[in-house]
Every structure is written in structure tokens, then in C-alpha cells.
Design a protein around this nucleic acid. Structure first.
Lengths: 199, 199
DNA sequence: GGGTTAACCTAACACTGTTCGGTTAGTCGG
DNA sequence: CCGACTAACCGAACAGTGTTAGGTTAACCC
């Protein structure tokens, strides 16, 4: 097939289909050939629109991070922290499969830094030292990313029988997928509340 | 080369060289061929001692996790939580490059579960409900893994000039590698202290 | 000393991301 | 209207990945 009348590819379409594949098949489930196939195209054609796979993932990551909302600091810094963390977590957990890439890659993402800068400024305005503000922001990110990786409760979904005998203390209620999600959210809320309260 | 007089390979040697490569070249820097080469052997030979690369990584991960110490709950549960978290973080940050794999993979690791079970039991003994104990343990893991991924301060080590103008609030002192490590540790301690205090 | 097994090898398979050189449809200048 | 040029796609290839099948030989046991 030579040049088609109307282009089959665009950066936006590539990103959106790639994200759909990641959501469906996981991070390892995305290959350039598979992505191309689902776009009705050969793999090489992608490189006219995307510099590299890593760049593609970065772009997707940035677009997800750009939905994070850091407003709400006018009221009070505690409320601002909580809202920011919730928004961050919501953004991450809407596409959980890409979180490992996000956490792995450099934190120096434009979107991430902008929001961090705002957060940092708000904390300093509230009376914290610069160093403290940095550490508080870091702590908040620990909780957000730790919970979004969610290698915790959703990582348990193996055979319940494995746990019952060997780990007497562990409640196995959280093995049910529905409960696991709820438990993850509640754990996040508890950790967040405890962290902010303890500051 | 046929069967050598003294075996060149053993699961232990393979694991230790593999971990050395990961520490030196990163998680992506480990390939079976490279590992084999450093062991003075061909790649296929590894599969007589190791079922699969993923299994190898899991074994390495388990051996790292097995150094985590969850004692210290006799004194008081707050102290126990803090000691456990510190020990966990120490174990992870001694081999930071494997943390992404650890965080990515299932939490259902034998070593991880044993310690989780103990922690859970200690919390229940201290008067928390089973559900609360689970959530507290999860929260602790969020902070530990979030901090060990350390996609925070060590992720910034780019060009300092990039930050100065665009992000006025961000202090750029933490760009210095030495400071970054210290800041990471202090951020972890602050998050941990705030979390435990806030419970 | 012969048979068995364990430890290594070579070669290959099916993938991966990425690049090079071609082929053609669309677009613009004269 | 026609030629030059570019944009968009393709086929084939490269170097690399994890993994397996089948072969070769040294060490071990009876």
C-alpha cells in the first residue's frame, strides 16, 4: 500500500490505541508490531509519527499526568495535600498498567514538575521551610506511587488455599477482586490521612 | 566444551553474578547471554540450573526480602512498625535497580507474606481490627516501596539549569547526588514518622 | 569397564525495537 | 496540465532478546 488518500496514522491515534493495548494487555503486551497491526499498518510506518517507543510511552505518561489537579491549596495546605494526592492517585489508577513505567522512568517529567513546583510553593507559603516542603512532597509521592503500584492487595489474587494454612494471621477476605479494590482505596485513604495528620 | 571437571555453574553463583550485573548495569542491563558470558559459559547452559529468567529474578528478589527484619514488636507496635519499615527500606535500597521488578511483580512472595503475616498478627495483638491491621500494613508498604523506587530525588539528576527558571519554587540543592541520597532518606523518615504518629 | 547422568555446547525459533531504501498518492509551482 | 517534491506507507533486514532441541563428552556408580 502506497500513500493512502486519507492518512491512517496520527500521533493522537497512535497514543490512544497504544494506551488501550496497555490497559488491555499490560505494559509488556505492547509491541510496535502489535500496535501497528491494530492500526491497520506495518510497524515501520509508526516511526514516521513517533520517534521511539520510549518516547511514545513518555508522551502517554505525560498526558495522564496532565489530568492531575493541584488546586485546592487556597483553603488550607492539609486539604490541598489530600486533594492533590487523591487526584494523583485517581489519574494513575485509571491506567494502572502504565504505572510501573511511570515509577521507573525519571521524575523529571514536565507535567510532574509543574505540579510539584506548585505544591512546593504552597507549602512554603504555609510556613514550611523549603527543605521540609520538599520532603513533604516526596512523602506524599511515596504514598501515591506506592498505592498506585498497588502491588499489595491486588497482587494477592492467587489461590486462596495457599494462604489459609501458612499465614494464620492474614485475613483472606481481600482475595476477592471486588474487595481488593475497595481495600486498596481505603488503605490509601488511611495512609494519606495518617500522614497528613502526623505532620 | 563438554562436561567440565568441576562444575562452572551453580544456582548460587548464577544468582550472585546476576545481581552484580543488575547492580552495575541496571535491570535492563541483565540478559541471559551477558550473564552467561560473565560466568564463562554459553547462554543455554544456564537453563540447566534456572527454570527461567523471571524465576531467577524472583529468587534474587526473595533472597533480598529474606533479610528484612520484623522483630521489635515486643516493645510496642509503633516502634515495631518503624523498625520493620527501616529494615525493609534498607534491604531494598541496597539493590535499588531490582526494586522496579519487585514492585512490579506479585506481592505473593513467600518471604514477603511471612513478614506481612507477622506484622499483621502483631497489630491485631495490639488491639487493631483485622481490617485495620491490613490497611496499616498496606500503608507502610506504600511508603517503603514509594521511597525505594525513589523516582523522586534521584530522578532529578538532569541539567540543573532546566529547573531554575521554569520552576521557581523548587530548590535545586537536591540535584547534587550526595544530597539526593540524604534527602531521600530524610523524606522517608519524615513520611514514616508522620504516618505512624497519625495513626 | 560399561551404562547412565550431568554439564556443557551449537543451532535454531519466535520474538523485540529500529532503520534503510523503495513505491506511490497527494500537493504545489510554473 | 505537467513535472518536481514531499508525505505516508511498505518489505526486508539488523542486532538483540528469552528459550528449546539435540548433540557431545566428562564424571560417576555398579
Amino acid at each position: 500500500m502506497p500513500r493512502p488518500s486519507t492518512p491512517l496514522l496520527s500521533p493522537d491515534r497512535i497514543r490512544s490505541v497504544a494506551l488501550a493495548i496497555i490497559d488491555r494487555d499490560g505494559l509488556d503486551g505492547l509491541s510496535m508490531r502489535k500496535l501497528a497491526a491494530e492500526l491497520g499498518v506495518q510497524a515501520a510506518s509508526l516511526y514516521g509519527h513517533v520517534r521511539t517507543k520510549d518516547q511514545l510511552l513518555n508522551d502517554i505518561a505525560s498526558s495522564i499526568l496532565s489530568t492531575v489537579d493541584v488546586s485546592g491549596f487556597e483553603v488550607d495546605w492539609r486539604e490541598g495535600l489530600i486533594r492533590c494526592a487523591r487526584s494523583y492517585r485517581a489519574a494513575l489508577s485509571s491506567h494502572p498498567n502504565i504505572v510501573p513505567f511511570l515509577a521507573y522512568g525519571p521524575a523529571g517529567r514536565e507535567e510532574s514538575l509543574q505540579r510539584l513546583d506548585l505544591l512546593h510553593g504552597a507549602l512554603v507559603d504555609a510556613g514550611w521551610s523549603r527543605r521540609e516542603a520538599t520532603m513533604i512532597a516526596a512523602g506524599l509521592m511515596y504514598i501515591v506511587f506506592g498505592s498506585a503500584l498497588s502491588s499489595f492487595s491486588s497482587g494477592f489474587s492467587a489461590d486462596p488455599a495457599d494462604y489459609t494454612d501458612r499465614y494464620p494471621h492474614l485475613d483472606r477476605a481481600h482475595l476477592l477482586p471486588g474487595v481488593a479494590r475497595e481495600l486498596d482505596r481505603d488503605s490509601f485513604e488511611l495512609a494519606l490521612a495518617a500522614f497528613v495528620r502526623g505532620l
